[in-house]
Amino acid sequence: MDLFVARVVDGFNNGVIYGFLALALVCVYRGTGHLNLAQGEMAMFSAFTAYAFYAAGLPVVLAILGACVVGFIAGGVVERVLIRPLGHHADYSILLVTIGLFLMLNAGAGVIWGGDPLPFPAPVPSTPDDYISFLGTRLRYQQILVFVVLVVVMVGLFLLFRFTRLGLAMRATASNPDSARLMGMRVNQINGLGWMMAAGVGALIGALVAPSTTLTTGMMFNFLIYAAAAATLGGFDSPVGAVLAGIVLGVVENLVGSYVDWVGSDLKQAVALVILLAVLMVRPTGLFGTKKVERV
């Protein structure tokens, strides 16, 4: 029983990271309707930025917030300089630019901070004794913090999209950019804002999970794929769906990997992908996504 709970909790913690990064993907998708392949690397780079602030003497919390601000601004710059000039329908060009960014950031972090893992401090106490016992398993403060921040961000985004004038404009823009312009919305600025929010959220994730994963240039690589899976399952337009899907993926993946011998640890991650394939076959818009409805 204890082992089962521990495995659920482990999977849950992974799932939280998937869901968190999926939120960032959702922000970009909300804006431009594109998948940013460099999202994970932007988060990784921001985590290193936070490390730089910390190494320069800032307290951890301020260092993380500073990295979020830098990420937020950088996201806007990337959108303005590299994405917007390509136009709205240049799917391939945008995909390629995000691939180029991916390569640059990944290699760039290595150039600046070297290839070795760096220690990154958690903003909460994280000695081996800092945990809460829960049904016989240990919930570390660090993991609780990540989860709490995730919930806060998710609820914040949900409220923004659902109840504010700006959120309404973002949804209208993602769904029908031409109509949005005819309603007086500044579509380009709204897209830029989506990128900024995504990069800011990404910076938060990078810095928060760095203490558990250690800070390396490859830390986000695998997460991005599962985040994309989570965002797809959750339906790219639903922040709550993306987070739930991320957590479900994390838990199912860990349980199947632990209890089905045939799968084992090698194929554990494949479970998430098989779920993704299966769901897309049945519901092409994801589990929680709104079906595009149209009647002529």
């Binding site: 309404l168 404009a169 949804r171 769904s175």
Partner: peptide
Amino acid sequence: VVDLTVEENLRA
């Protein structure tokens, strides 16, 4: 905007 509700369209 087909993905928004009737009221949301008006608010938008």
